[in-house]
Design a protein around this nucleic acid. Sequence first.
RNA 1: GGCCCCAUGGUCAAGCGGUUAAGACACCACCCUUUCACGGUGGUAUCAUGGGUUCGAAUCCCGUUGGGGUCACCA
Length: 543
Amino acid sequence: MNYKALAERLLPGEYPPLESYEEKYPPRNLPKGAEVTRLAPSPTGFIHLGNLFAAIANERIAHQSGGILYLRIEDTDLKRKVDGAVEAVKNALRYFDIKFDEGAEIGGDDTYAPWYQRQRAEIYRAFVKHLVEEGRAYPCFCTEEELSALREEQTAKKEVTGYYGKYAKCRNLSEEEIYRNLDEGKPFVIRLKSLGNPENKRKFRDEIKGDITVPENDQDVVILKSDGIPTYHFAHAIDDHFMRTTLVIRGEEWLASLPIHIELFEALGFERPRYGHNCSLMKQDGESRRKLSKRKDPELSLEFYRKEGYFARAVKVYMLTLLNSNFEEWYRKNPEAPLESFKFSAGKMSKSGTLFDLDKLNDISKDELSKLSAEEMFDFLKTWADEYGTETQKGYFVDREKMLNTLTLCMGIGGKKRRKDFTTASQAMEFIKFFFERTPQEDEYRCDQETRVAVLTSFLKKYDPADDGQTWFAKVKETAAENGFAAEMKEYKTNPENYKGSVADVAEILRIATTGRANTPDLCTIQQILGEKETRARIKAQL
RNA sequence: GGCCCCAUGGUCAAGCGGUUAAGACACCACCCUUUCACGGUGGUAUCAUGGGUUCGAAUCCCGUUGGGGUCACCA
């Protein structure tokens, strides 16, 4: 077989010599130990927590080693393309402070561009042509129908499915048959002529999983599709070589195709990058758990977290605690240190699937939010409200002074202990709402109407907006005593049967009457800020 | 089904041949309390299973079971 002629027929025309690509995309001039990592999404525009999870790992590893993180767009499949996707991905990641050094629409060093795989067609084809010339790749004319028939046959016979060995029909086509097919204008793909045998196992060192065994590949995988564009596997080998990637951190779902990638790198004569296959973020689905999916879990999209107003740093801290098990302890000891100063390590990444735990995220969110100053909170909430808030909510920010005071009170700034009442911007906006209007009753009074009216009436009689906190609370106690409630907690606890309840219950009645809720900051201060008129009006309305 | 990965409380997990098997979230109780929160203290709860190896196993080996991933001209 004249492979040279076949290659020319399959991929006609002059291609630059292979070495020229080595020169065009030279090894990077980086300090020793610097890692080059990448994020390589397909342009569906959809990005979820699992993607962020991997993104943070790649970003940390690149930047803490003095290396490079770049963005490559894997757009070899037109069906996946969505307009504006690259912008969407960049925005989502920027929100979480993932910064690229170079890549699609990033700017920076363009030595290794283009960053869209579709624009790299020539490089791929040059190397495919080379493989054909060497007899390591061949055209395949099988139709979709033939292929699926083959599948069924193999399934029925309980054999491994795929295009390999004796099932690789086109592998053994004669020269005449090939040219006849070509002359008839039959569409074709180009497949790798695999030399492997899955019975042979190889030791492989994975940066996350450690030593694993990998069977040799024997699948004659498609490397160039009938539209002349490579498949993921082939593009991966070419791109990660010429973009000089040193470490590929990618999802565990790729582990199964590692044998293909190993063979491809060897066939091309490239040194391969190191790999780390990270566990997927899982979701509880009824009895079992499964990996996060774009289709089934839209609520886990990054967009969802922005809409809810999750604090980016909190999400990042949570991801980091999942990513590196020693992070949490480090963070506890170094609460003030920038997150970047944590020594991230691929070897510390979990080997088994991790269930996403919203409770934990929420806890971290409260902590992170409680560290903000009133101004920082103002900015955080305003940014959120500008994009996602209602008109009413946007209005809260008009009177900056009032908003700042409100936040100061609601966050417990200046008090002994910071409050931690809300998890997200949208929750925060709900929480502070009673300042601007009495919220519709969220919590029910836990007493009968008669008691409530009696309590409120006697409080109203004593109420004086000029009272300071102590005097105010003394009056709450009096109100309690007058209505059969214990004024002192201790007294109530020793003889609960003597009372209807304690001063706490009275305070709750007043709180609900004033705000609509049982959970608010200091009630006395709230009433002061609301003013006498508003306070009286709100309470009277509850009689 | 074949192949590969994984296995410590409800969840995230420390542990690397000898520990009372850390810690965090959640849950419960109590304490603090000028109410709501915050905070503090304590508690419930884990080494999937069967065999080895060893004086000694959560830790090493093998089997079993269970969970996950993957088997496209998708990435």
